[in-house]
Amino acid sequence: MYRLTDFYRLSATLTGYDEVELQGTGVGPTYCKTLSQWVRQDVIQELYHRAEEIGSLECESNQAQFYDRIWNCAKLGPVARNIIKMWYLSIWYQLPADWNALYGVDDFSADKQPVEDYVISSNAYIQGLVWNALGSHPMGAKQPGYGTWAFPGQSAKPLNLD
């Protein structure tokens, strides 16, 4: 199943970026597909549901719940961490072998598991959140203009617009 809305909502919680900012990268559908490729649907659904139950991470009690029920959960924690790394670093990392043994996709044939960590697409590299978070730009793309490397860096969200 391919539930982009759920994926964006969960991703916003996990990355700290607004849903519209994630949509603005244009790579959300690819990431959603990538997740479905390497993680079983029932595991993904469970992660969506649990994140939904916990709600916004702005209040501290929800954050504590998030750590207990997702981050430190042997089944859901590695998936949540992979989603964050996917958004920030544009890379799908192999899930740990012991996790795979318990919760991995049914078919363990070679084409069902990535043989190594991989950059999801050329555009994904450009759209990695890490660049924005660093106040930088992906080397070789989104050029910032000649000489701008001599300017002080900018923080990811310099303005409070509320």
């Binding site: 519209v20 900012e21 949509q23 603005g24 990268t25 244009g26 989104k142 050029q143 910032p144 203009g145 000649y146 000489g147 701008t148 300017f151």
Partner: peptide, 17 residues
């Protein structure tokens, strides 16, 4: 010119929403 490039990225991102 640096700001122009930033403007382009902001416009492109917004148009995907």
């Amino acid at each position: 010119v640096g700001t122009m490039f930033g403007l382009k990225e902001k416009a492109s991102s917004m148009m995907r929403v």
